[in-house]
Design a protein around this nucleic acid. Structure first.
Length: 412
DNA sequence: TCAGTAAGACTCAAAGCATC
DNA sequence: GATGCTTTGAGTCTTACTGA
């Protein structure tokens, strides 16, 4: 909500509406004047409007069309104050929109905007959400419903591997601060599974050697404050904290620690929008070889898909992603690759499945052995042998005998 | 027939994207 | 940057199903 609009006043004595609509702000004027006519103060209306984050723009676009309709049927706005049968008005208005060849989305938005307006004017739920209007819009709703289709999600490792490849450039100072910021933003998205807009309006809450904590507001209901940790992880090449520090330490000091300033690099740099951050992240994704058709949002989907693939429980994912209902959200939107596996399983007989399972186990074991062989060889060459931290649970016989896999490794 | 529950539909808001 | 449109997400209500 711009200050320009907030400060216009629009003061009129309650109960009187004198208005001629002619501009793109007519929807906002209509909303303000109808609320004012009912006795609501300008300040109260301002507060109501400013408490919408972005939806007001869509509502007012819809109400602008409503203002045009009132003009066409030669009615003043106060006509809406005393509707005996609001559902009839809604149906006639929406029918007019349909016959004016408005798009399905436009009709849907107009209905939504009108419902909100009438609700704010005190009409009952029953009158606003009538079966009459529901029936009128049945086909439009059907057309707008998302097609139930399979959509593959890219493998998160593609992006992580690409970031690993950038480490030498980072170490040689060959990456610009903007590039480092974009990669850091990706890392934070991957490891916090936060929405870009939430990260964009975050503030730095607390820092320590091993973690930075950022705090943000979640505007999707239930609206709340959330903290995300940017932590160290074992693989330094893709450590979000390392990448975050790599650009954050170089940004100009004294940039205020307030919402929407976190990602700003300098005072000279113009205010960074969520869109700018989104474009920078998309550029990195494309450099990594991820198709342009995938949006920034897909990072979240890829991260959750990877968690599901590695059998992280739904409850854990639920907590991690701050979703309220994993069953209906994560399953529906993120677990998109499982269909392929499901088809493979359905298309195979028990015998083939058993064999495949054995082969898979064999393959994993062989990989582990091969990895350990190189470690042991390295240890034999070096006077101080060190087990890699991730495989410290493995115990080796003192004399390696590579012919028999199972005799070498004892799993605890 | 009824109560409990699961699944689906509807609504509204926020976020994201494309285009000018 | 403004605007129109689509996607994502959650709350609430309705419908379908199941077993007693």
């Amino acid at each position: 909500m711009g200050a320009k609009h907030r400060n216009k006043g629009w003061a009129l004595p309650p109960g009187s509406i004198y208005l001629f609509f002619s501009g793109s702000k007519d929807g906002e004027k209509l909303f303000r004047q109808l609320q004012h006519a009912r006795g609501l103060s300008s300040n109260a209306v301002n507060h109501i409007i400013s408490n919408w984050s972005s939806q007001w723009r869509i509502h007012f676009a819809g109400l602008t069309l409503l203002a045009g309709y009132l003009k066409r049927i030669h009615q003043q706005p106060d006509y809406l104050l005393k509707l005996e049968q609001p559902q009839i008005f809604m149906a006639n208005y929406l029918e007019d929109a349909i016959s004016q060849k408005c798009s399905d989305n436009s009709v849907k938005n107009q209905r939504c905007a009108l419902s909100v307006l009438l609700k704010f004017m005190g009409y009952s739920e029953q009158q606003i959400h009538s079966d009459l209007v529901k029936q009128l819009l049945r086909k439009i709703r059907m057309r707008l419903r998302q097609t139930d289709k399979e959509k593959q999600i890219w493998d998160l490792d593609i992006l992580l591997n690409y970031i690993k490849q950038q480490v030498p450039l980072l170490e040689q100072n060959l990456l610009s601060i903007q590039q480092r910021r974009a990669i850091a933003a990706i890392q934070v998205m991957v490891f916090t599974v936060a929405i870009l807009a939430e990260l964009h309006r975050a503030v730095l809450f607390r820092t320590s050697k091993d973690e930075y904590i950022i705090q943000t507001t979640i505007l999707k209901s239930p609206q709340r404050i959330a903290e995300f940790k940017i932590c160290k992880i074992p693989d330094e090449r893709i450590c979000p904290l390392r990448w975050f520090k790599s650009w954050f330490a170089e940004r100009e000091p004294d940039i205020p620690n307030k919402a929407q300033e976190l990602w700003r690099i300098s005072h000279a740099e113009r205010y960074i929008q969520a869109d700018d951050l989104s474009k920078a992240i998309s550029a990195v994704m494309q450099s990594a070889g991820i198709s342009k058709t995938y949006s920034v949002t897909s990072i979240r989907a890829a991260a959750i898909t990877k968690l599901l693939k590695h059998n992280v429980s739904s409850v854990k994912i639920d907590r991690f992603t701050l979703h309220s209902d994993t069953a209906s959200t994560v399953r529906q939107y993120y677990d998109k690759n499982n269909n392929v596996e499901a088809r493979e399983v359905l298309g195979q007989t028990e015998e083939e499945l058993d064999n495949e399972e054995d082969e898979e186990q064999e393959r994993t074991l062989l990989e582990e052995i091969e990895h350990e062989r190189s470690n042991v060889e390295q240890r034999m060459l070096s006077p101080v042998g060190v087990l890699s931290p991730g495989l410290s649970h493995l115990e080796f016989s003192k004399t390696p005998q590579w012919h028999s896999h199972h005799s070498i490794i004892v799993l605890h």
